[in-house]
Design a protein around this nucleic acid. Structure first.
Length: 443
DNA sequence: TCCTTTGAACCGAATCCGTT
DNA sequence: AACGGATTCGGTTCAAAGGA
């Protein structure tokens, strides 16, 4: 029973603050895993109590030792976590604090198969409101057998997340940084042969990313590494997609009540009344094409606030002239224009899909995670447009504009399956589920 | 050009760590 | 306690590259 429960949990992610990834300290593999498991657990506790309880069995399972009864190991790890100081943020990657020192746990107790842990208050705020964090797959961590693999994996995921979760990411790391992150001081020969090579092998074999690297020389010696990370295609796609489409999610139902066109506007941050007015005033093509047009501009970074610009675009018709001229008769369109239009429609669909998915993904997060995203957003707000700030002051997250902007920024952080990240993958998945959808439409 | 430094690919021993 | 895997580190040989 317990194992089944644990099995479910292992598919989940924890948000590990960047600060705690760059801990300038030597943690053993088990200590690191316990650290992650506890972070995950505390992020999933709805109440923000200073102390939390979790079963020892669950903890053992989360660190990949489900068959072991050796609680002594756990106690040792907990002892190390409560006594060894961790110095965080020594790489200055996190904007909220530059430097800090504390122990990870304020204390821990084990009593009749239950673990009671008290997080260090200094760390609690970081864990509960991480502004920068890596999404670590809990399942992945159990499979590593080397502490370096786990440390490197965390570092890479963090790097990916801080760069907007691209599908592939190429970047350079100095050996100094790497030595610090991995806490390995040996000469390059050993760093390479004893640490990096086995790690890369393990990461490629067991994790959700794949990695290759090459040395960057300064003079004769290697001074940095050029890393190429690629997110592996995850297989969850199809089943996940279909169940979501049929679910009775309240969010979906709410959206389904509207006129689809109206709904498209609403999901982009336009207020309900305004959306209705626009739909009544202008014809469908004009609205659709302006949405597509605005979204292209938005993705190119030319638009700050989607909703406001969109309304203006529809009212004043920002569509490129050529296309609107060619529009009226579908049969008169050249093949190229038809293809372009299809692509545009696909893009619109895709964006709508992404919009929905990001809200769904947000809805299933724990309240702590949701709160973390909100506070990070508020923090970013200081550096962005004043209209948005005004809106936020007035209505908070209830403001349509704020809401739209919030979720639009969450795209990069929450969307992760291939069809959410890549238009072509989305098209492919559409073809895959076309039959399912057709069957449902008939039935 | 020759000498030196560096790395790649090995080997192997000592030690650490957790399991049985 | 004995075992197996991870970690650390010293060594060797060969080849490539940098510096004088």
């Amino acid at each position: 029973m317990m194992h089944q429960l644990a099995q479910q949990h292992r598919n989940e992610q924890l948000l590990k603050p960047t600060a705690t990834i760059h801990v300038g300290n030597r943690l053993s593999l088990i200590e690191r895993k316990v650290f992650n498991a506890i972070i995950w657990h505390s992020q999933n506790q709805r109440s923000a109590k200073p102390a939390n309880y979790m079963s020892v069995d669950l903890l053992m399972s989360l660190i990949g030792l489900e068959r072991s009864k050796n609680t002594e190991v756990i106690m040792d790890a907990l002892e190390r976590l409560t006594t060894t100081p961790i110095v965080w943020n020594t790489l200055k990657k996190d904007r909220t604090a530059d430097w800090g020192v504390c122990t990870f746990l304020a204390g821990a107790e084990m009593n009749g198969g239950r673990l009671r842990y008290v997080l260090n208050p200094l760390l609690v705020e970081k864990v509960e409101h991480p502004t920068l964090f890596a999404k670590i797959q809990l399942l992945v961590q159990t499979r590593f057998s080397s502490k370096y693999s786990l440390a490197l994996y965390e570092f890479l995921i963090d790097e990916m997340c801080r760069n907007g979760n691209p599908k592939t990411h190429v970047f350079q790391v100095s050996l100094d940084t790497l030595r610090h992150v991995l806490q390995f001081d040996g000469i390059y020969k050993h760093l390479n042969s004893d640490v990096l090579k086995p790690c890369v092998k393990e990461i490629n074999k067991h994790s959700d990313i794949s990695l290759v690297y090459s040395g960057v020389k300064k003079g004769r010696a290697v001074a940095a590494l050029l890393l190429t990370i690629e997110r592996k295609a995850v297989q969850l796609a199809l089943t996940d997609l279909v169940t979501v489409e049929t679910s009775d999610d309240p969010l979906n139902q709410l959206e389904l009540m509207n006129d689809p066109l109206e709904q498209m506007l609403v999901t982009r941050g336009v207020g309900k009344r305004k959306a209705k007015a626009l739909v009544e005033t202008y014809d469908e093509t004009r609205i659709r094409e302006n949405i597509a047009h605005v979204e292209r501009e938005y993705q190119a970074g030319k638009v700050k606030v989607l909703s406001a610009y969109l309304i203006r675009a529809i009212e004043e018709d920002y569509r490129p002239k050529v296309k609107s001229a060619a529009l009226p008769e579908r049969s008169e369109m050249s093949e190229r224009e038809a293809a372009e239009k299809a692509r545009e429609e696909l893009l619109t669909d895709w964006n709508r899909y992404r919009e929905r998915r990001v809200r769904e993904r947000f809805a299933v997060l724990s309240s702590a995670e949701q709160e973390a995203h909100r506070s990070a957003f508020v923090e970013r707000l200081d550096h962005t447009s004043s209209i948005l700030k005004k809106q936020f002051k007035k209505d908070g997250f209830a403001s349509r504009m704020v809401d739209a902007q919030f979720f639009s920024e969450l795209h990069e952080r929450l969307l992760e399956s291939p069809e959410e990240l890549d238009l072509d993958a989305y098209r492919a998945s559409l073809m895959d589920i076309a039959e399912v959808v057709a069957a449902r439409a008939q039935g």
